[in-house]
Structure formats: C-alpha cells, structure tokens
Nucleic acid binder design. Structure first.
Length: 519
RNA sequence: GGCCCCAUCGUCUAGAGGCCUAGGACACGGGCCUUUCAAGCCUGCGACCGGGGUUCGAAUCCCCGUGGGGUCACCA
C-alpha cells in the first residue's frame, strides 16, 4: 500500500508547537515508508487574508525541514490544495449523501435546537435531536420553506449499533452510534463544514493514514460515517497524545502564555528569548513571539533540527537510551507502534538541553554562519560585514565555547568587541570597580599589560599570575575588575581571551576610561 | 453531565509475567574545580494512583474505584 499522509493546518498566522509535532510525525511516517506527505490548507471558514496568515506556517515548516510532496507552492496531481477551492466537490458529496438518505435537510432554527438541548439537559438525559424540523421529502421541505425557514444539511446518524476503529496508537476504540449527533455538514448558504470537507479531501488525496492529535478522536465516528456513507474505504487512524502544558496534562495553548510564565523553566526560556528579541528589533507587538509558537525559536536562534529531534521525543521513543538522531536515523527509526498514548507535556528546559547538544557539535565556521544574521539584525556589524569584524566574531565564538547555547547568544558575547565604547553594566561597575583601591590596582595592571608580547592568552595568563603573586592578592581580585573594565559586564569568555581579542591598544584604552568609575 | 482517551521519578520515557533492589535523559540537591557562566568533573535525591482478583510469581493481564485529559458549534 502506498503511504500518503497529510498535515492540514488552517491559516491562523502562526505555527503552534503541537501542530509541528503532528506535522513531523506525518512527515516521518511518509518518509519512512517512501510515501508522500501532503500539505492541505483547511481554510474553509476563513475570512481573513489567507496569504498573510499562511505564510508563517509554510515558512515555519520549511525552516524545520519538513518538506511536502504536494501542496501549496509545489502543486501536485490532486490540486488544488486549498480546501476553499474544493467546494464544488464538497457540495457534490453532500448531494450524494442527501440522495442516499444519509443526510437530510433540516429547517430548525438555531434557537429551536438550543431549546431541545437544554430540555434534555434539564431532564438529565443525553441530547438527541428530535428531527422534527427535518425534511425527508421534497413536500416536507416545501412546507417548511413556506414558513420562511432556511435549511442546513445534517447527517442522519445511525441510532443503533456501534463503530469500532482500530487506532494505530490506541488500539480498539468503540463508539455507540446513538451518542452521535446529527452534525451539520452544510450551511444554509451552501458552504460546507470542516468534517465533510476533510473526509472528502482525504479521500480525493488518497490519504492512507490519518495521523492527528487525540482531540480528533471523538470526531472520528462522524467522519467515519461520512466516509462509509460515501462508499469510501476508511483510512488507517493514529491519534497522537496531546502536547500538554509544562508540568500539566492540559492541552498546550497559545492563549495561556501568562499562566505558563509562572513555571520557572518556561519563564527562564521566555525571558532569555525576550532579551535576544529586544536586540534584534523584533516588533514588540509580535504575538507570535511566544515559546508556544515556532517563530519564537527561529527568532532566538535555535537550530531547526534540535526542535525536530526534541519534538520527536514528545510521545515517541525508540528505546530506553537513544535520544539524539540524525534526520536519516530518525526516519529509519520512526514507527507508529512506538508512539505513546498518554499526554506529553512540553518541557522547554529539555528542548534547551537538546539545542545545547546540537550547538555543541557545531564548528566555529558553522556557528559563525548561523550567528551572523543575528549580528546584522542587531546592527552590531555592518552589511556586508568587513573582514576584520568577521575575524573578531570568529575569535569570540571560539573563545566562548559552550557558552553560546543559541545563535542569538552571540549578541551578548560579541557586542563589547564590536562597539567602540561598550555600555557599562551599572551593577557590575558598582560591585567590581567602585571599591577602594581598585583604580590603583587597575593602573598597575595596565602597566604590566602594556609590556606583554605577544598579546595572547598564554602570555597574558602568565603575566597576570605573576602580577597577582607579587602583589600578594588573589587572582579573582584582579580578574573581576579588569573584566568589567574592558567588557562592561561580569560574564563573558575567559578574560585572557577577551584581552587578546581586543588587542593591547584597545584593552589599555578601556582600562584607562574605566579608571574614572573606580574607587 | 454524556461519550471517549489516559495513568512508571518534577518532566520526557524504558518496561509486552520472572532479566526490576524498576533503567536512561532533562531538571533539581550536594561536593570538587575555579576567572565570571544556564561551563566542566564527581555524586546524590527521586516513580509503578488505590483496592480487589488471575498466577508459583504482576509495573506488566482482568475488574472496580480514584484522578487527569479530550470532545460534545451552522470553528478548524
């Protein structure tokens, strides 16, 4: 059987982290079996600007390396891939259902339906539509229409028996038909609803496996009913565990950011991202800048594969130890059988650790390549970058080692090398410079520095240690003030590296200027 | 509330009846190192939701509770 999977986002303007996980699993499954991954845009109800709301989603998937074989931008044998452009087929399907008696026109007004529902609720029995405004014949329809009523089309769900599906992750699931409502599949204006459209499109696209989040499990009976009634064979279903909130089992939601921020891990990751975004000039009103949205990670400088790898582990695992996979390894290892069925909560700290792992594996040139765009955006470096600046940044990257966790981190590690007079952190000045004797110490150290040749980390260390021994003080006594004097802050690469990168002239100039702030 | 799903360390998970004194990873605690650090090294804490069965033997199978979640739109 040819495997064909799909991801069907609606154009909302952003790519939710849970959505990516669904897309990723569909993509992995298709790749694993040499099948096709199809991207369909479910814009049925959309009145917004689809192009604008779609772009971030397509860009996000591309960035993550989740490529589609058919869909927007690439076309394919089943075009169009926008649900709104397939309306004619949907309407045809509704006509067929009507003709075969699997659906009916219903002339009830919304208030009348509400009333029935409330009555059932009050009586404590499960609600089931009475179908008293249903028109099963043209005569009945004419009669209701004469009253000035409008009609929608509803599914005529079976009221006995049950549906059994064999879900690839959940196993056997049974639904009693009598619990299913006569859902509307077509509005009075003739437009069709999602469930109908989705089933028809899946069939037209020859989707073999419907892999989607668990929230759709309860939707399966009505969709299966539509498919069966239309004479389609059912696709295989796989309902993925929900991606839950950090430390909870509730579905992760973009709207609840404020609440998640109370989680220390989440807050740490969000604040770190904010610091980077501030410097790259990201519009502050960007509400897609949120750790629940994929854009966040791109703006901050995470590596796309780190996200894919982390997300693959959210609800799936290969064994008891393998955590890091190359793209090829993941594709080869992936299987529906090893998907977990309980909700998995999104842990930004673990994502951070995965990102750390991949960043660690990058060489200086690779890091430079992904970090340069951040320096350009923050205007710390001219465009095109002068060779000298590039060389400096490369040295900073080497000296910073594992301290650079995401590409955006380069901003706070390279800034003081790239500007003539770096800003001084007031707290650092107060703690390390504005103390008695520091000025005098710095002056003496500057004297020593001026004679160091070559002006490189090795010799600088030797000289500094000798200086400390002679003065009878601790290494930290000189290191900390000097660091603040030349960089303006208390954290950064090793001090000897910092001095060497600056060069003797600049280092001395900065120490000289810092003297003014010393005690 | 009805229906459906789920239940192993704080989190992600391994575990398909004896290999389990329950393994790994992240997080966390402690120690060391030290020139700052979401650095490094060592080390520690930490879980089978409860109750009944089945079995020589249950984290694993069954039942009942309990707890959590999803879904019940003329949204997708």
């Amino acid at each position: 059987m040819t495997v064909r999977t799909r991801f069907a986002p609606s154009p909302t303007g952003y790519l939710h982290i849970g959505g990516v996980r669904t897309a990723l699993f569909n993509w992995l499954f298709a790749r694993k079996h040499g099948g096709s991954f199809i991207l369909r845009i479910d814009d049925t109800d959309s009145e917004r600007n689809v192009d604008e709301a779609l772009e971030p989603i397509l860009a996000g998937l591309k960035w993550l390396g989740i490529d589609w074989d058919e869909g927007p931008g690439v076309g394919g044998p089943h075009a169009p891939y926008f649900q709104s452009q397939r309306a004619a087929g949907h309407k045809l399907a509704v006509e067929k259902l009507l003709a075969s008696g699997h659906a009916y026109r219903d002339f009830a007004r919304p208030e009348e339906i509400d009333l029935e529902r409330k009555e059932a609720q009050a009586a404590g029995r499960p609600y089931l539509y009475s179908r008293r405004f249903a028109a099963f014949s043209p005569d009945e329809a004419a009669r209701w229409a004469a009253e000035g009523r409008q009609s929608v089309v509803r599914l005529k769900m079976p009221r006995e028996g049950s549906l059994v599906i064999l879900d690839a992750v959940r196993g056997r699931v049974e639904f009693a038909w009598e619990r299913e409502q006569d859902h509307v599949i077509q509005r009075a204006d003739g437009s069709c609803l999602y469930h109908l459209a989705s089933v028809v499109d899946d069939h037209d696209f020859e989707i073999s496996h419907v892999i989607r989040a668990e929230e759709h499990l309860s939707n399966t009976p009505r969709q299966a009913f539509i498919a069966i009634s239309l004479g389609y064979s059912l696709p295989a279903y796989a309902h993925l565990p929900l991606v839950a909130e950090p430390g909870s089992r509730t579905k992760l939601s973009k709207r609840k950011l404020a609440q998640y921020l109370k989680n220390p891990d989440f807050r740490q990751v969000a604040e770190h991202g904010n610091r980077i975004a501030e410097r790259t000039g990201l519009a502050p009103e960007a509400d897609t800048f949120n750790p629940v949205i994929v854009d966040f990670y791109r703006e901050v400088g995470y590596m796309p594969w780190a996200i894919d790898n982390y997300l693959a582990l959210l609800g799936w695992s290969l064994d008891d130890k393998t955590e890091y996979f190359s793209r090829e390894e993941l594709i080869a290892s992936f299987s529906l059988e090893r998907i977990n069925s309980s909700p998995a909560s999104f842990d930004p700290k673990k994502l951070w650790a995965v990102q750390d792992h991949y960043m660690h594996g990058l060489g200086a040139d690779e890091k430079l390549a992904i970090m340069l765009p951040f320096l350009l955006k923050a205007k710390l470096i001219a465009d095109p970058p002068p060779a000298t600046a590039l060389a400096t940044v490369r040295k900073v990257i080497e000296a910073s080692g594992d301290r650079l966790k995401v590409a955006g981190d380069i901003l706070s590690y390279a800034d003081f090398f790239l500007v003539a007079e770096p800003e001084m952190d007031p707290l650092a000045v107060q703690q390390k410079l504005a103390k008695p004797g520091v000025g005098e110490l710095l002056s003496r150290y500057a004297q020593v520095l001026s004679k160091v040749t070559p002006f490189e980390p090795g010799p600088l260390e030797e000289v500094t240690k000798a200086f400390v021994a002679e003065a009878g003080i601790k290494l930290g006594d000189v290191i900390h003030p000097v660091r603040v004097a030349v960089t303006g802050k208390t954290v950064g690469p090793g001090l000897y590296d910092c001095l060497a990168i600056l060069g003797v002239h600049e280092a001395l100039a900065r120490i000289g200027r810092a003297l003014a702030a010393c005690g």
